[in-house]
Nucleic acid binder design. Structure first.
Ligand SMILES: [Zn+2]
Ligand SMILES: [Zn+2]
Ligand SMILES: [Zn+2]
Ligand SMILES: [Zn+2]
Lengths: 174, 174
DNA sequence: TTTGAAATGTTACAATATAACATTCAAGCT
DNA sequence: AGCTTGAATGTTATATTGTAACATTTCAAA
């Protein structure tokens, strides 16, 4: 069997021990619970889209989701996908990564939050971060400009720990 | 005559006293200087695109720029615009606002920086911020995740001071 | 003045997203 | 069960944003 810890810690990228199947299963169960509690419907279509967004820890484009659905012998059109994504965004079950025009599953659904993202330019994976100090600094900075922040976008592109060491090792040959 | 202070302070939105013509003139002069110093060419096309991006303090889409160029009796195509934008981005003369697919003139060109943006959802204007504390908090947060940030995107949508008071005044009637 | 690289022109298309209207579905009511 | 209604999805068409590939022009150095 694979590992014990299925849900990923905030701000961390999956390692060799990561059991992604478990990870997805847990996300689906959580989503079910949240939707039931709220009295909104996680229909089959929405559930499929959610699962496709969660297919990996890389942000997924809407048209990738579309292809995923079509692989299931259905003839789905773009609006269907965008509607499902819209629903999932509204429920806080996924986030949109603006700098990639892509979507990723939320690591901490259920409670409202903005979400900050670490996006590795090498492996393409993204990790969600919820750093109080970043939020505080942003509120501070905005406040001193008399600005009221409603919807912050924080997307940090760079290198994850793993790719960092890898590319450093390779940098001798480049 | 209009006002004295043409260049906008960091993090501030233009007020009634803002002399935008001066604002643009100064930006163009700065850009000329920077390009000369660096030995890169701010061609006529690039200069026009730059001026169009600076036409207001609202982020401007690539196709808006295209229209602006075409208004000048030219038959320009998209690649021309995107190339000019790419050049201006590379030189740090403009920034791209990811959450809007749009571009805005840099308030502090010349020295390399990431740039954080306050974007008013009401008036549509955007103000650049360079807040050391936000940068520091981000670096801290990323570092504790073992992540190395190369290209941060910080875009804060909300209400500017002016629109905030306006919409509060109107909120009685909504 | 040649000449080569940089810049722009041109054509065609890819990728992302939405408008508008039709149909189906599912839950509550009779 | 059958009816009603709003939500969800289907369907068609198109808008918006962005690039690939190759041709031509421009400009500065040799
Ligand atoms: Zn996982
Ligand atoms: Zn990585
Ligand atoms: Zn101005
Ligand atoms: Zn405003």
């Amino acid at each position: 069997m694979a590992s014990i810890a299925a849900p990923l810690k905030l701000g961390s990228f999956p390692d060799d021990h990561h059991d992604h199947k478990k990870c997805v299963t847990q996300a689906l169960r959580q989503a079910d619970g949240i939707c039931t509690t709220r009295g909104v419907r996680l229909t089959d279509m929405r559930r499929q889209v959610f699962a496709l967004v969660w297919q990996s820890h890389n942000p997924v484009g809407a048209y990738e989701v579309l292809e995923g659905l079509r692989a299931g012998a259905k003839k789905v059109q773009p609006p269907t996908v965008y509607r499902a994504l819209e629903f999932l965004l509204a429920q806080g079950l996924i986030h949109r990564i603006e700098s990639l025009n892509a979507y990723i599953g939320c690591t901490v659904p259920g409670d409202a939050h903005a979400g900050q993202f670490l996006i590795c330019r090498d492996c393409g994976q993204a990790a969600e971060l919820i750093d109080q100090r970043i939020d505080a600094a942003i509120d501070q900075g905005a406040k001193s400009a008399g600005f009221y922040v409603e919807h912050p976008t924080v997307e940090l592109e760079g290198l994850c720990a793993h790719c960092r060491s890898t590319s450093e090792a390779n940098s001798h040959y480049e």
